[in-house]
Simulated scan of single mutants.
Amino acid sequence: MSDPIEDPRHAYRDDGFPAQEQQQPGLIRDTDPRPDHGEDSYRGSGKLAGRRALITGGDSGIGRAVAIAFAREGADVAIVHLPEEQDDADSTRSLIEKAGQRALTLAGDIRDESFAARIVEQTVAEFGGLDLVVLNAAYQKDREGLESLQTEELDRVFGTNLYGMMFTARAAIPHLAAGASIIVTSSIQAFNPSPGLIDYAMTKAAQVAFVKALAEDLGPRGIRVNAVAPGPIWTPLIPATGWDAERLATFGQDTPLGRAGQPAELAGAYVYLASDAASFVSGAVLPVTGGKGL
């Protein structure tokens, strides 16, 4: 007997979230309710057997969901995280290894050009090569207005979301062969920016241009480049964004499906783009937004 069809409006929590606040980068243990990364639900079927993946920001949120899914689809997975996220990274590593795959955790900040290159070299050395690169690490913070945006904060957003992404991609490309895949985590903010996330939205729009240009550059070598554009997704980054109780209580309520998404609901999009099922997909931006248009 097949499983009953699920109403997507009620597949997960369909009301708001309680007031809470975290310091960046946000941790799973301090996030209420705990996000679903697919720990108990994702089932693999060998779509990525034998592949070797590197995921930045892979300790929690969307990156953790992708790491779990990739491992259960048969890939070895290296995850990059900040040092203060070590507990979350260790937990994710355990889930990768429980799936029977090799795991590697790499602590540091991808804004550091040498670190961003070193994580590629360490992954290649550990796994014997590299096939999948998920450029997912990001930083966002609520802004009261452009006039109050400090240069230090602007540098952190651009450094993480753009420079770190490009440093990692630049180091990875020489190791990628035909059939490899690069996937960037962009955002609905690239297309429908919120004033309070002006700097973050700018970087997400730039990522779309990066994906389209790099897809054209690497296509003749058989390397595909795509992006996923999430809508409102409940991750530890959300309580660390600096939103007030009212904003959290309504988070995701403006989607046509009437709720925020969970990281586990993103995993299939990344698996698809990484797999041979997407062999003719490159330069694309795949929205996972609960129905909100790009």
Rank of each mutant, 00 (worst) to 15 (best):
Q22M: 11
Q23N: 14
Q23W: 11
G26C: 09
G26M: 01
L27Y: 13
R29I: 00
T31E: 06
R34P: 06
P35T: 05
H37L: 05
H37V: 04
E39F: 05
D40T: 07
D40F: 04
S41G: 15
S41A: 14
Y42T: 00
R43N: 11
K47A: 14
K47I: 02
G50D: 10
G50E: 09
R51G: 01
R52D: 05
L54F: 06
I55F: 01
G57E: 10
G57L: 12
D59Q: 08
D59Y: 02
S60Y: 01
G61V: 13
G63W: 02
R64M: 11
R64S: 07
A65K: 10
A65D: 07
A65L: 11
A67L: 05
I68D: 08
A69S: 12
A69W: 04
F70N: 00
E73N: 09
A75P: 04
A75C: 04
V77I: 14
A78C: 04
A78D: 04
A78Y: 06
V80C: 14
P83L: 12
E84L: 05
E84F: 00
E84R: 06
E85R: 08
Q86P: 00
Q86N: 10
D87H: 15
D87Q: 14
D88E: 10
D90R: 09
T92Y: 03
T92V: 12
T92D: 13
R93G: 12
R93H: 00
I96V: 08
K98H: 03
K98M: 01
A99H: 04
G100W: 02
G100H: 01
G100Q: 00
A103T: 03
A103F: 04
L104E: 01
T105E: 01
T105K: 04
L106F: 06
G108I: 02
D109H: 11
D109I: 06
D109P: 12
R111L: 09
D112Q: 11
E113S: 13
E113N: 08
E113Y: 02
S114V: 07
A116L: 08
A116K: 01
A117D: 12
A117K: 14
I119C: 15
Q122M: 15
Q122Y: 08
F127C: 01
G128H: 14
G128N: 07
G129N: 15
G129R: 15
G129K: 15
G129P: 15
D131R: 06
L132M: 03
V133Y: 03
A137P: 02
A138W: 03
Y139K: 13
Y139G: 00
K141P: 08
K141Y: 13
D142F: 15
R143C: 08
L146P: 01
L146F: 12
E147N: 15
S148W: 14
L149S: 07
Q150E: 08
Q150D: 13
T151Y: 11
